[in-house]
Structures are given as structure tokens and as C-alpha cells.
Design a protein around this nucleic acid. Structure first.
Length: 402
DNA sequence: CTTAAGTTTGCATTCCCGTT
DNA sequence: AACGGGAATGCAAACTTAAG
């Protein structure tokens, strides 16, 4: 509401501030009663009943003469907890994280994870001073089972809880951190242990062939649809999707015979704004300008000039530079069209690397081309794509040199 | 480990084209 | 010109994974 209108209404006595206070209190009361997990009922003798949470017994019965009295009891109980609940300390921890400078994207993730794991759950209203390592283990086991969490997910969730308790410990709300007594084994053993299949990570050669064919066909049919060229370029460079949309014409260094992969387009999900920043590792890298890449870039430039899309960014459409969603979606629809399972730009990245590695390129060179460390290259990007014939050849030659 | 980039999912919106 | 159905494309929240 407009501030002047509000002030005017108060001055004129149209709005009475004391009434507003009443409304706030009523709402707060209503809110407290709504989140109370136990029902409120009247017994035959006209008495009113409910339970209140209890850290030892779990819950304790309570009885009063009227509904109003029992509600007052509940409201008072929860008011007592104010400032001490897990929820309150989560908020304090989050505020601290903001002060320490976490990004908006991370903040948004914290919030969505809170809703997912804690909202309306038993943990959020618990008095943090009374939470024991058993309570935490119990919550962890419940969440692991409920959400079928993998080990990483479970560890991330535990990381949140530990962070909140650590903060509470530093602020002297609690004397020791119960998380220190939690045995991760107790919940990790319920984690989903399944590993991703090879086909989930890399695109097999026959599907690469089909996709490139579909892309070619669509380029002929709809040559001004720029994302098609970006997907094609991904197949030749293994670039990250943000790097593709962050690519500028000034990065195409014909003089050096290479592409300077320097920027990455990112999205601030809170502000809903795209921005250009450094690549994920913060480093620039050079990628050779091959004939295929030159061909793609020339076609892009030609189409953009023809349609009036041309600007400083390599991949631009009628509304200016395109965003990574367009490239990801473009690939998705080409897959559907080709009748193969959905693939992502990152699948292409893994495929490009695995092709290099299975044909004998060292991790030093592959990692340098893709812009990550050798360790990351081995851990996340190297999959066996060699055919059984190739393996046969290798095994046949095993002792030839001796 | 924590931080944040990337992917998935499920619509919403726009485009296209044959039909009224 | 308006309609309508299906395909293509765009978008955002929810979820997974990469990488320091």
C-alpha cells in the first residue's frame, strides 16, 4: 500500500493502529495454533484436551476447562520457544551467510532446501537447546528414506544442520554441538547407492551421429534459429553451456588460430538477471579454431547479419543475445525429434572428453582443452567409449612387443 | 566440506498451418 | 479473418552435480 494513503488513513481515524496490533496478534495466534501438530478436542465431561511436545516423553497430555484456555496454553508454550527453535536459528545462520557474502543463487537454494527438508516437519519447531544427537540422527534417517537421498544429498543435508548448530554454539545458545556426536554411518547406510549408468553420462557414437544429422537438417529448414549452431559447436568443443552463451566475437582470435574461452553467462535467480562473468574456474583458456568450428561460426555470422541479429555476442537472436536455456532446450527438442533419450550440453561435454580419452589423449591435454583440473577430468568426465573391436585389438597386441 | 552452476520437469506461450 | 490443434519454444521452480 502507498505510504501517504496509509498515513492519511491513520490521521483521519479511518485506520486505528491499536486495531492493527490486534489483527497482528490474532494472526500470530492463528499461525501458532495452525502449526500445532496435535489436535484439540473436547471430552464428554466438557474438558478440553491436547498434547504438548516433550523432549523426554515425546508428548505430554494437557487438560483445561475451556477451549480458550487450552488454546492459551498452546500459544504460551510456543511463545516461550520463540527465538530458540531450529527455524529461528536456521534464519540466524542464513543471515550470517548473507553477511559473509554467499551469492543470491546459493541463498535461493538454502531456502528451497529448507522448504523441502524442514518446512512443516517435526524438526523446525523443536527447541534447539533440547535437540540431541538422537533427534538429529532420526531426522536424517527419515529424510534419507523419504527423499531417497544419495550419499551426496544426505551429506549436504547434514551440512545444513551442522552449520545451524555450529552457529548456535558460537553464539552460546547451546553448550555443545550435538552434531559432533552423530555417527554419519547411521544415516548413510540408508542412502540410495545406485551409480549412474554409462549411458546416463555420455552419448554413444550412433546417437551423436543421429543428432548431428538432425541438427544439419534443421539448420537447412530453419537457418535463422541460432541455438542450433550453438549445440553443434558444443559437439566440437565440449564447452559448458554458459560458456557458449558468454562467447563474444572478440574471443574468436583468427590471428592466433583459436577461441579464447573467457566468459560465462550466469543467471542471478533471485534478481532474475543474466550477467557475464568469468568461467567456472575463473581462468581463460584457448581452444583451437578448427575448420568445423570456423564453418559453424561463419554460418552464424552470415545468418545474424542477414536477420539483423548481429551483435557483440556470438549467439544472438531477434531479442539480443540468447541465453543458456535456449541452447539446452534446443538440444532437448532435437533429441525428442530424433527419437532418442533427452541429452544435455553437459552430456556432450562428457562425451567429447571421453572420446578424446578413449582415443589416447592424455588427461593433461584433455583437461586443458575443457578447462578443469586433471583430477576433475578423471573423476567426472572420463568414460569408456571404446568399441569391443578396439578392445579386442588392444588385447590381441598385449604381448606383441615382447 | 561448501558454494553455486547445470539439469529436469512441467507447464505457458507462441508459431504454424490447415480449416471454417 | 478467425479458429483450433499440435508442434516448437520459453520459462521458472525443484532438484542434481561440478568444482573450488
Amino acid at each position: 500500500m502507498n505510504k501517504e494513503i496509509l498515513n492519511y488513513a491513520i490521521e483521519q481515524g479511518i485506520i486505528d493502529l491499536s486495531h492493527i496490533q490486534d489483527v497482528v496478534n490474532m494472526n500470530k495466534r492463528k499461525e501458532i495454533l495452525e502449526q500445532h501438530p496435535y489436535s484439540i478436542w473436547e471430552s464428554k465431561d466438557g474438558k478440553w484436551h491436547t498434547y504438548l511436545p516433550d523432549k523426554e516423553k515425546g508428548r505430554v497430555p494437557r487438560k483445561r476447562n475451556s477451549k480458550k484456555d487450552i488454546e492459551n496454553l498452546i500459544v504460551d508454550y510456543y511463545k516461550e520457544q520463540v527465538g530458540h527453535s531450529f527455524k529461528d536459528w536456521w534464519e540466524k545462520w542464513e543471515e550470517k551467510q548473507v553477511r559473509y557474502g554467499v551469492s543470491n543463487n546459493t541463498l535461493l537454494k538454502y531456502n528451497s532446501d529448507y522448504v523441502r527438508f524442514f518446512k512443516d516437519g517435526p524438526f523446525e519447531s523443536m527447541d534447539i537447546r533440547a535437540v540431541t544427537e538422537e533427534d538429529i540422527t532420526e531426522v536424517m534417517v527419515k529424510c534419507v528414506k523419504k527423499y531417497d537421498l544419495k550419499e551426496k544429498g544426505a551429506k549436504a543435508l547434514f551440512g545444513y544442520i551442522r552449520g545451524v548448530f555450529k552457529h548456535a554454539r558460537i553464539k552460546k545458545e547451546i553448550n555443545e554441538n550435538p552434531c559432533e556426536y552423530v555417527e554419519p554411518r547411521a544415516f548413510l547406510r540408508f542412502c540410495n547407492q545406485s551409480l549412474p549408468l554409462l549411458d546416463d553420462r555420455v552419448i554413444p557414437p550412433d546417437e551423436v551421429e543421429i543428432l548431428l544429422k538432425v541438427i544439419k537438417e534443421d539448420q537447412q529448414k530453419n537457418p535463422s534459429y541460432i541455438p542450433l549452431y550453438a549445440v553443434e559447436l558444443a559437439f566440437y568443443t565440449g564447452m559448458r553451456v554458459g560458456e557458449l552463451t558468454g562467447l563474444m566475437w572478440s574471443n574468436i582470435r583468427e590471428d592466433l588460430g583459436c577461441i579464447m574461452i573467457q566468459y560465462s553467462e550466469k543467471l542471478d535467480r533471485k534478481e532474475k538477471k543474466y550477467y557475464i562473468a568469468k568461467t567456472k574456474t575463473g581462468k581463460e583458456r584457448l581452444f583451437p579454431l578448427t575448420d568445423d568450428i570456423k564453418r559453424i561460426l561463419n554460418e552464424v555470422k552470415k545468418q545474424e547479419l542477414k536477420n539483423g541479429y548481429f551483435n557483440e555476442f556470438v549467439f544472438s537472436g531477434e531479442n539480443g543475445k540468447i541465453h543458456f536455456g535456449a541452447i539446452a532446450d534446443c538440444l532437448r527438442y532435437r533429441c525428442e525429434k530424433a527419437g532418442i533419450r533427452r541429452r544435455t550440453i553437459h552430456d556432450i561435454r562428457r562425451t567429447v572428453n571421453s572420446e578424446m580419452r578413449t582415443s589416447g589423449v592424455s588427461s593433461v591435454v584433455a583437461a586443458s582443452l575443457l578447462g578443469h583440473t586433471e583430477k576433475v577430468n578423471r573423476k567426472n568426465y572420463t568414460y569408456d567409449l571404446s568399441s569391443i573391436e578396439k578392445k579386442k585389438e588392444i588385447i590381441s597386441n598385449l604381448y606383441k612387443a615382447m
